[in-house]
Write a protein that binds this DNA or RNA. Structure first.
Length: 799
DNA sequence: TTGTCGCGGGG
DNA sequence: GTGTACGCGACAA
């Protein structure tokens, strides 16, 4: 492999060492404000100028300038209105033009385009991507200077403020803010609310917003953050401030008010859940403030879950519990109950809101490091990198900067030639119960293949994408080693884990970049297909080689294989077999021993249960875990599948009979049979369609005497004897247990017991899950029943 | 039944 | 000046 060169490090990190940049605010005219943190309590704002630039495919549209257009370095260039430089290579976008004032540059290019006839664009942004590269001013500045955010800073050096609004409802047009909790990573924790002011109505809310803005300015954080900040708190705050005519001065410079920027639908920020009659708000608007970065922890959560896929949901409370950051005395209040609780027990709501901001801050520290680390690499604002897709939002800017740094012309977008995109391989090789299971997988298969076979975009003359992947992989390994060597909980460890996470995201998006035709400049479907073809071949090779080692294949998916090893093997044997298979693979494709399990229930592709050697049950896939499951079903599945994998077959049957009996005798509390529903129709909408189609959640509302409800309300319902739908109130102390026994017995059988069907012959299954307590006369004794494993696919069939 | 759209979050 | 995934439920055909 090639030695690292300074050039490739400049591609990845930029080249200017200016430390401590925490925010950049640039104007089209070439003025830029740069905030730099020099110490814990010192932030300076530097006023600078940069030379706005654009990259054009032709100088034709600037010919009208005559002598006012000069080549860079020419003697007359100093007085020239616009200068240019022709980049090397064969790329399409080859003229780097610049001016003292970006508005002049824009005006002259537009004048030329209009003079050419045909188009009369009002803004450069309307020109085609094959005619021009015209970045937002901050990015022009960062690309041209080689600077990035946060050099020399650790994540905890940032001054981060979390704030959380408590409101009377979700609709900013008619509901109010009555409380704002504020917290920083430096120990501030404060609740501002309307009660403490003694004011009422508009005056109280306006006063609250003013006090909040004053606290932000006084505290002067670098970052404002919260969970769903862009989707709720900022738009709500902006709307209330507008309605109440309160100047909202939250930034470090400029006029009051939040400015908007467009953002795609991907992160779904602003949507008005107002219900009918309410003006639809534009989707995909985000807010920007000079001098402070606005960070939404929901973005970090989505990015994390994109790879990890192990989150129970994306709500703050569930996340905090999942990551173990919820305090033991955490106050919980249902969203819809917050205001009512405030009127009765204000201190509970204050506690609750402080718990919210505390968890948001912890969550940010836990998952926000990757975006922080990306901001030390890519030439974009931190807040943009925090919500950007890794391919179009990060790799693309890195490549554009790399080409300009190399003085190389950029290619035009590759047109879509209709080539079909081909995908990964997925095989279910056997279903049922297997023992002594191991998982072997290739970490980062696709980028490894890109590196191994030097597969990059055809138009990438510099080979920059594959070079970036090389550097990212090497430096990620180094960061992982540094993290491991650092003490747990230390800044050193956190920083290096964040770098590693960021690099992993970028490495894994390199393949997606290739396939994103029309979205990324260097997209190349054929290259992407070459990668997946190699991937399918490698998976097949791994499967056949493992089978030759004597193991039984269970499931193979993209880059990993579950299989069962023969009786008598110990862990050393397992590792040795995987190592022998790994040795047959190309050097950069690293097959790893990922885990070993006592047993596995293979149900369908991507749906299985595993029992670890320390007796933990892992359920994967919608067949085994879903938010829709009734609690009793979840309980039953856990115990029945647990018994199955522990080889306690009578236990499986006992779990079923016990649950059936608990339902039949109504020993099961009603809370165990409720299911969750979200009311997506308002009461009026439901009345309109009720005649044609009745739906359980709404019928439950009506039966409970609730004639009206809002959009988005979450309810718990169950089916009562006689088929009536009933609303379940968690806070109710009495429990009549009037649920529909026959219905829930069917649910137990058809939705839950059926998940174990692959583990048995049909006869044995019927015996184990007999409808009554008396197994049929012909049935075998329970302890004679053995689980089965059914082969579905021979190793030779995996190609 | 099958296909398409829209959601995930916040009070 | 953006742009995502994936699996699911709701709704329409």
């Amino acid at each position: 492999m090639q030695e690292p060169t300074p050039r490739e490090d400049a591609w990845l990190w930029g080249w200017d060492a200016t430390p401590g940049i925490v925010s950049v605010w640039a104007e089209r005219d070439g003025r830029v404000l740069v905030w730099r943190r020099l110490g814990r309590d010192e932030v300076i704002c530097e006023r600078e100028r940069f030379r706005p630039w654009a990259l054009l495919s032709t100088l034709g549209d600037l010919r009208h300038l005559g002598d006012a257009l000069r080549e860079e370095g020419a003697p007359e260039a100093v007085q020239a209105k616009i200068t240019y430089r022709e980049l090397s290579g064969t790329g399409h976008l080859r003229f780097l033009v610049s001016a003292h004032d970006g508005r002049v540059l824009e005006a002259e290019i537009l004048a030329g385009v209009r003079a050419r006839g045909g188009k009369t664009p009002g803004r450069l942004a309307e020109l085609g991507e094959d005619e021009i590269v015209w970045l937002p001013p901050e990015e022009q500045y960062l690309v041209a200077t080689g600077r990035t955010y946060f050099r020399g800073l650790a994540f905890d050096d940032l001054h981060r403020m979390q704030f959380d609004l408590e409101t009377t409802g979700l609709n900013a047009a008619r509901e109010r803010i009555f409380l704002i909790a504020v917290r920083t990573n430096r120990g501030l924790a404060r609740v501002l609310d309307v009660a403490e002011s003694g004011l009422q109505g508009d005056t109280a809310e306006a006063d609250l917003i003013r006090r909040f803005a004053a606290l932000v300015r006084e505290t002067d954080p670098d970052v404002l953050e919260n969970h769903n900040l862009h989707g709720f708190d900022l738009p709500f705050l902006a709307r209330r401030a507008q309605i109440l005519k309160v100047p909202l001065m939250l930034g470090r410079a400029g006029a009051p008010g939040l400015r908007q920027r467009n953002a795609g639908r991907g992160y779904g920020p602003v949507r008005d859940d107002a219900g009918e009659g309410e003006a639809e708000r534009e989707r995909g608007v985000r807010y920007i403030i000079p001098g402070r970065e606005l960070i939404d922890t929901l973005d970090a959560v989505r990015r994390y879950d994109f790879a990890a896929r192990d989150l129970p949901g994306h709500g703050l409370k569930a996340l905090a519990r999942h990551f173990g950051i919820a305090a033991p005395d955490r106050e919980y209040i249902e969203g819809a109950q917050v205001y009512a609780t405030w009127q009765r027990e204000p201190d509970r709501v204050r506690h609750y809101a402080l718990d919210d901001v505390t968890e948001a801050g912890e969550l940010s520290r836990l998952l926000g490091g990757a975006a922080f680390a990306m901001a030390t690499m890519a030439p974009r604002r931190y807040e943009r990198l925090a919500d950007a897709g890794p391919a179009t939002g990060i790799l693309d800017p890195l490549l554009v900067r790399a080409y300009l740094y190399a003085g190389e012309a950029l290619p035009a977008f590759t047109p879509h030639d209709g080539t079909q995109h081909t995908g990964a391989a997925l095989y279910l090789c056997a279903s049922g119960v297997a023992r002594r299971v191991i998982k072997a997988d290739v970490s980062s298969l696709y980028p490894s293949l890109m590196r191994q076979y030097r597969i990059g975009p055809r138009s990438d003359r510099l080979g920059a994408l594959v070079a970036l992947v090389d550097r990212l992989v090497a430096q990620r390994l180094a960061a992982k080693d540094r993290a491991k060597a650092a003490p747990p909980g230390s800044t050193e460890r956190h920083t290096n884990e964040a770098i590693s996470a960021a690099m992993k995201i970028l490495v894994n998006s390199a393949y997606g970049y290739l396939g994103a035709v029309g979205l990324t400049r260097f997209a190349d479907v054929e290259a992407a297909n070459a990668v997946t073809a190699h991937g399918r071949a490698i998976l097949g090779q791994i499967c056949r080689a493992l089978a030759a080692e004597g193991v039984t294949l269970l499931e193979a998916d993209t880059d990993g294989v579950y299989c069962a090893v023969p009786e008598g093997w110990d862990e050393a044997d397992e590792r040795a077999a995987v190592a022998r298979v790994a040795a047959q693979l190309p050097p950069l494709v690293r097959l790893e021993f990922e885990g070993r399990y006592a047993a596995m229930l293979s149900h369908e592709t991507k749906n299985y249960a595993l029992l670890t050697y320390d007796d933990h049950l892992i359920l994967r896939g919608v067949a085994f875990r879903s938010i829709k499951f009734e609690p009793f079903g979840e309980t039953f599945l856990n115990s029945a599948v647990g018994c199955l994998l522990r080889d306690d077959i009578p236990g499986v049957s006992a779990a079923y009979r016990a649950m059936a009996q608990a339902i039949r005798r109504r020993e099961l509390p009603t809370a165990q049979v409720v299911s969750r529903a979200r009311l997506t129709k308002t009461s009026a909408q439901y009345y309109a369609v009720r005649a044609t189609r009745r739906e359980a959640p709404y019928e439950a509302m009506l039966n409970a005497g609730r004639a009206t409800w809002g959009h988005g309300e979450r309810v718990l319902i169950y089916r009562a004897a006689g088929g009536q739908h009933v609303l379940w109130d968690e806070s109710r102390s009495d429990d009549r247990r009037d649920y529909d026994v026959a219905h829930y017995l069917r649910v137990l059988r058809d939705n839950y017991a059926v998940r174990l069907a692959r583990a048995f012959t049909p006869e044995d299954y019927a015996t184990l899950f007999a409808a009554d307590n008396q197994p049929s006369l012909f049935a075998v004794p329970l302890d004679a029943i053995r689980p089965i494993l059914t082969p579905l696919l021979a190793p030779e069939e995996i190609r």
